[in-house]
Amino acid sequence: MTNPPGADLHLPEGCMAGIAMHELSLCENILQVLEQQADVQQYRKVKTVWLEIGALAGVEIEALRFSFDMVVQGSLADHALLEIIEIPGQAWCSSCNRDVFVEQRYDLCPHCGSHQLQVNSGDQMRIKELEVE
């Protein structure tokens, strides 16, 4: 947790050499939504994609950016900008009876130290809006 930046590569177990498969498949899902919405919303090109990514969603933002550029090549979103809105993790502490901020799922309540926390925000992965033409 106190490692200097770049000291560790955050490639989770189960990911293919050098490529974070998880983020890659998320990007494929994003592209599917963009393509499917092109008919509904009448656009031919996607210029910017705004995503809401929760701190507890288990997504490596850098891996997501890398995968996105790769996945959208040659598609209607080729060279699209990816704007990521990070949503902080929030949980209900049943001891304190209030919402508290958490950075990880295993965090204890910052006020009382309890682990009886119910995450209620920060695990979302949503496509919020698009700039299209």
């Binding site: 998320l26 899902n29 919405q37 995503l51 496509i127 033409e133």
Partner: peptide, 17 residues
């Protein structure tokens, strides 16, 4: 000339799954 516009999506990335 430029027809850039915004569209709201509000869709979960894993909506299809």
């Amino acid at each position: 000339l430029s027809q850039t516009r915004m569209v709201q999506i509000e869709q979960d990335i894993l909506a299809k799954n």
